[in-house]
Structures are given as structure tokens and as C-alpha cells.
Nucleic acid binder design. Sequence first.
DNA 1: GCTCCAGTGGAATTTTTGTTCTATTTCTAG
DNA 2: CTAGAAATAGAACAAAAATTCCACTGGAGC
Lengths: 277, 277
Amino acid sequence: MTPGEGAPKDFAALRAAIAQRAEQLPKRLMQIAGYALENPDEIAFGTVASIAASADVQPSALVRFARALGYQGFTDLQDVFRSRLRDRVLNYDERLAKLRDHGVATSQSGLVLDGFLEASERSIAKFREKVDHEAIDNAVTILAAAHTIYLIGLRRSFPIASYMSYAMGKLGVRNILVDAVAGMGAEQASFMTAVDAALAISFAPYASQTVALTDAAKSRGARIVTITDSVFSPLASPADALIEVSEADFEGFRSMATTMAVAMTLCVAVAARRGES
Amino acid sequence: MTPGEGAPKDFAALRAAIAQRAEQLPKRLMQIAGYALENPDEIAFGTVASIAASADVQPSALVRFARALGYQGFTDLQDVFRSRLRDRVLNYDERLAKLRDHGVATSQSGLVLDGFLEASERSIAKFREKVDHEAIDNAVTILAAAHTIYLIGLRRSFPIASYMSYAMGKLGVRNILVDAVAGMGAEQASFMTAVDAALAISFAPYASQTVALTDAAKSRGARIVTITDSVFSPLASPADALIEVSEADFEGFRSMATTMAVAMTLCVAVAARRGES
DNA sequence: GCTCCAGTGGAATTTTTGTTCTATTTCTAG
DNA sequence: CTAGAAATAGAACAAAAATTCCACTGGAGC
């Protein structure tokens, strides 16, 4: 048999071929087509078995799919998905070269810096792909409707909360930064009423005080907006709007780039929403 | 054996580990180290046999290399190279396509969010090009030598200072967050001595109190490290080390992504430097 | 209602791949 | 110059993977 005759050689052609032939394809093969277009990275890196499991098909179906598109086997198809990633990295090698030219590699702190810059970039790129815009819109709606916004963020999340307090102050949005200074957190939270909203920010390992303050806010009838790293967070269940942010890390230190951008967004969007009415 | 103990988990950390240990590595392993840094894609996609052939070594040498870095086997090492490709930042065309798919442009808050994410990315990219590594190294040297580090950052810079206080605390680096709560800033600063160092963070418009506190620190003999946005900043002249960070902005709100990354770098690098001696 | 066949699932098979083992070479130190 | 240790190459092995095969299902057409 002539190997790979008429099979798309680059990713763009492959995508076109899939889109074109999708209708005539059998059910299970169409299911694979959809999965492949939505999870190209999975195809590029996974094994037949792992992909089959995650796409909920049989391994043999994947091979049939590749054959149907004209490839000799699944491996040939996978090569196309891999080459797509190869091409994308062109500017990365340039960056590496640049780093070497500048002699970064020799400096300890240069490597650390580059690690954090890269973690920030990864965070942002990843977040871009899986933002839940609806959740953010909901959050803005809730916060814009609140009389006073109570900002709850301790330990690692405190910088975020304090930034928001500063920015909202500048924008004329009434807010209270619930801090633990002098142990007054509980008292501050007790001022909340049903016309207010609380913005709780917490990441694993979740500070117990943040959870307690948020629950208190909930029980006083305030609407709750949460920024956290997973839907399994203890802050998820009391939340009326949940914004999920998972930051990349370098050597165990998580970036804050995305969380900061989300914080800024909320401040500006809330102020804008209020300005409209 | 505990699997993967102490092995770098992301690519940046791996690169740092390789660069650091390169000298002590045996000849053949060093050859692999060089090849790996120059052909990361090959490592990510290739098989042990194919990589070995292309790097002109034996397959077993690759396994030894992975082991030497603390991984359980070559596969673990390869995973790091793959993960780097997984969430690589998208190029401009792909990003545009994604924007179109997700219909971001329709939502008000989506536009704002995208603006801030982009400002963060621009900040990071720009900073990468004009970092002064020497300045950062100087800063680390000064801070690592200090008995106590006084963190001076008010208003917009307060989130940075408070993050550093938190991180340094975690890392066992003695520090004092000079805050303006109860107007005690001046008193706190008056505790400084010549064996201490001050880290002053300020951006235009420079808070006068930050400048005053920094000058006070200088006059008490403390070494001064400064993070600011220009060499014309009032914080520039008293500085023993000056790190220049100019953030991109969206609608007048400046990103904090780069400053945060620099802050994290200083914390980790100072702790590491102290750990060495 | 029966037949036929494309489509499918799952196990069997074969190929590929990572890893381990050991003889040999290459350094290092006395 | 020699003994010992570290490093290496290459082949052998075991694990994992892709692929093939075959029995079965569910419709379409007669």
C-alpha cells in the first residue's frame, strides 16, 4: 500500500479535511473528530489508550479514524498534531538564544527571574483558554448592585484584596477591606447586610479564617463572589458567582499575574457598570 | 526510592537546575544537557532511541541523565519538556481565532479582562528585553547581606510590599513591612541601622511618604534597593541598587505582573543566596 | 421479517520503547 | 605505574504501546 496517500500533511489541511468530511463519517468517528479538534494537545501527547479513554471510544476506533483520513496508522496522524506544536515554538527558541546571548544562564537570579516571568505568561495563556466569561459577568453584576463591597483576602491573597481596595477607592466604589489586623475581622464582617456583597479570595491551602468570614457574610444575607482555584474549594459552595483561576508556579511559588488581572477587571468593570445607570 | 524527589517540576526550574549543575556533570551527561537545552522539541517528541541517535549518545546515557537530575526515569524528564509545550503562549493568529470562537467581543467585562491580560503580557515581554540582570544581582546581594529588610511600599505599591513580607516570612527572611497604619511609618523606619537594608517600591506619581521614608533609611546608614519606573524617579538617587520596571497599562490602570514577578524573584533569590552561605 | 453489511467493541498480537544489566573503558589517586 | 572507582556502551529484557483481528450489534434494503 502507498503510505499516507492523500493524507493532510499539516494541521491546517487536516482541520479542513475533517470539517469537510465530518458529515459523511460514521458516528463514532465523528465523535473522535470533534474531540480531536477541541483537544489537539491531548492527541499530540497522549497514547492511543489514554486518548481513547479520555474521548470515551475504543483504541481501535482511533486507528480507524486515522485510516479514514488516509493515514497509514494512528501514529502518522499524531505526527501532524505534533508538528503543529513544533512550529508554534519558533519564537521560543529565539528567546532561548537571546537568553544565552545575554548570559542569563550564568546568573542564578536571572534564572529565577525567567522562571517567574515564564510562569506568569503560562498562567495568562492558560486562563485565556478557559475563562468563564459568564461567571465574570455575574460577578460584576452582583458587585455593581451592592451597597458596600467587603473584600476578604488573607495571607497570600491579601495583596490582591488590598489592591482592589485601593483601586475601588480611586474609582469611587464603596468598599471595606476586611483584614485581620488587631483581630477585628469578625467585627468588620458583622456590619454586612443583605444589600452588601462580599468578594472572597482564597487559594489552596485555604485559610480557615477566610472560609469562616465568608460563611458569616453568607449567613447575614450578603451576595458572595469568590475567586479561587478550584470548584472543590471550600469557598465554592457559598458562592453566588465563582471565578476559577489556577496560576502556574515556579518552584512552588505561584504566579499572581492572572489573579491580579482579574482583580483589575472586576474593579474597572464594576465602576463602569455603575456609571451606566 | 521516592519517585522524583527534588526533581524540577517545570521547564524553567529544570533549565535552572541544569545550568547550575552543568559543571559537576560527567562529560557525556553534559553533552546531553547541552543538546537538551538546544533541542527541547526533540526531547519532547522523540523516543529514547531517536534522541540518542540524534544527540550521538547511548540510550542508557539519557536515562542516567534523567536520574542524575532526580527523576525516576527518562519518561519523567520528558514530561517536563512536554508540559512546556502544552501551555505555551499562543501566537497572535491563534489568539485571534480563539477570541472569535468564544465571542469575547460581545461582553463588556470580557473586553476589559482581555485588555488587562494583554497589558500583563506586554509588560512581561517588554521587561524581558531590557532587564538589567546586573542590577537584580546587586539587589539580591545587598538584601541577602542585610540583617533585617524593611519593605517600603504604599498605596499602589502596597500589595507588592505586603506580598514580599508574606513570602519572606515563609522563607525565614527577617523583614518588617513599613506600613502607614496608625501613622507609625516614621517610627518603624527609625529602628533601621547600618546593618539593615530597605527595599523601596514606588511608581509615578511617587507617594511623598515613600520618598521620605527612603531618605530616612538612607540617612540611618541602611543600604537602599529600589524598584521604580524610571531613573528619574526620586527614589533613584538614594538607591544602591535600582531595578527599573515600567508596566504597560490598560485604560490608565497599570499592570502589576512584572513587578510581582520581580518581587517573587527577589524573595526567592535572597533566600537561596543566604542558604548557600 | 430476513439478510446483509458497515460499524463497533474488546481482546489478541506484534511492534516499539524504556529500562536494566554487565563487560569494558576511562579517569583519579596513591 | 597500578589499584580502585566512576563512567560508558551495548545488548538483553520487560513493559507499554500501536495495531490487527474477529465476533457481535444495529440498521437499511429487499
